Amino acid sequence: MAAPRARRRGRRAGAGPRGAWAAAGLLCAALVALACWAQLPPAPPSPPWAPGAPRPPVGVLLWWEPFRGRGAAGRPPPDCGLRFGLRGCRLLTDRAALGEAQAVLFHHRDLVRAGAPSPDGAGEAAALAALAAAGARPPGQRWVWMNFESPSHSPGLRGLRGLFNWTLSYRADSDVFVPYGRLRARAGPGDPPAGPLPPLARKRGLAAWVVSHWDERQVRVRLYRRLSALLPIDVFGRGGPGRPVPRCGLLHLLARYKFYLAFENSRHRDYITEKLWRNALLAGAVPVVLGPDRANYERFVPRGAFIHVDDFPSPAALAAHLRFLDRNAAVYRRYFRWRRRFAVHLTSFWDEPWCRACEAVQAAGGRAQVVGDLAGWFES
């Protein structure tokens, strides 16, 4: 991975929904004490180790385990060498080891939620503020803002201006880029394809959609309503017309369908989630995508591997195209040509961000920076 690069943060975007989470205000107040470390001291002129001597391992502390809402000390850290062939990383979960870390990862959703009052009147954000105010943050330590939600679901951004040194997210212009998934080139004939592709005879359904948060106001729900009047679409998940995922498992279920509706909950740059990578490409269904524009998808996926809703003037035209592909097997199979050259890699949010942050520290050396307008960049 290339060394993290300084860049212009985007201009400040318009204010989000008024009062987005009352906890955001508490977060701002709790984190104001962190401004004391917004400007890092200059890097030392030479490394603290002797020339030619092996460099000490890079310590990276994970403050919260992403998407679990608790500290990361609940299970042993991964081995970056075994997982990614990356040596020289010391992954930390004990917050008492703060002084030993060259970088600390803070997951945004947990950071904002921690700003809310807890039963005992304290909160994680307040504890962090007290920690920084007490001067417990070592000079030169990088604090990394980590987020995998879209701007539409990331409240409290404006309270974090100038407080972090790096960004880690699915955005390709993050300091540490960790997408939800990617296509990797197959190493050779022995490298398996992107997942089991059942014969067409086993694809008994036309289209499927898995949705966990049903909201009639969302573009994706409105589009589903129009398409479902024209096509048979099976919906799974919580809310709306969804049914429970059967015991065979998600991938086996979706492999029975020709198409998968990879509809994102909001449309933002580079916000392409497991709906594309796992539910469609890995499962062996052709993705019908709703998210950023086609050009954005084509930065990561071959243009002939997916169907974009923007390519059609109406839901009726899209439905007609899907019916055409259903009747023409040879044309339908063209959407799987990418599997000859690529396999799907799914990101593990437990170990991959952690190890990639270590790799970034190794590559960056002593160079320091401060993320100024975090909200303006992320919402652009």
Score class of each variant (00 low, 15 high):
Asn165Asp: 09
Ala127Ser: 12
Ser174Asn: 03
Leu40Phe: 12
Gly25Val: 11
Ser154Phe: 08
Asn296Gln: 11
Gln39Ile: 15
Arg184Val: 15
Gly156Thr: 01
Gly69Gln: 02
Gly121Glu: 06
Tyr224Cys: 02
Trp338Gln: 00
His107Gly: 05
Arg90Lys: 12
Phe324Leu: 14
Pro41Ser: 05
Pro199Gly: 07
Leu227Pro: 07
Tyr335Met: 08
Gly376Tyr: 13
Val371Arg: 09
Arg294Val: 08
Pro244Asp: 07
Arg278Val: 12
Pro138Cys: 08
Gly159Arg: 02
Val361Asp: 12
Pro41Ile: 10
Asp79Ser: 12
Arg5Ile: 14
Gly88Met: 04
Gly25Asp: 11
Leu34Trp: 14
Ala320Lys: 06
Ala43Trp: 11
Pro4Ser: 01
Pro76Thr: 02
Trp350Leu: 14
Ala116Phe: 11
Gly190Leu: 13
Arg225Leu: 01
Ala33Phe: 06
Arg182Ile: 11
Gln102Pro: 10
Arg226Thr: 11
Gly159Ile: 05
Arg109Trp: 04
Phe312Cys: 04
Asp79Leu: 00
Pro56His: 02
Glu149Gly: 00
Arg171Gln: 04
Ala316His: 10
Arg356Lys: 15
His268Gln: 10
Val32His: 10
Pro48Val: 03
Gly190His: 09
Gly372Lys: 09
Leu231Lys: 05
Cys358Val: 10
Ala185Pro: 10
Ala23Asp: 10
Ala72Met: 00
Gly291Glu: 02
Phe306Arg: 07
Ser212Gly: 09
Ala53Cys: 11
Trp64Cys: 14
Leu131Tyr: 02
Pro117Cys: 05
Arg90Ala: 13
Ala375Leu: 11
Pro47Val: 09
Ser314Gly: 03
Leu250Cys: 00
Arg340Glu: 14
Ala114His: 08
Val211Leu: 14
Arg83Cys: 13
Glu65Asn: 13
Pro45Arg: 15
Ala103His: 08
Ala255Tyr: 06
Arg55Phe: 05
Asn147Ala: 13
Pro179Gln: 00
Trp63Thr: 03
Ala172Thr: 09
His268Met: 07
Val178His: 03
Glu65Tyr: 11
Pro179Thr: 02
Gly156Val: 05
Leu128Thr: 06
Leu105Gly: 05
Leu183His: 00
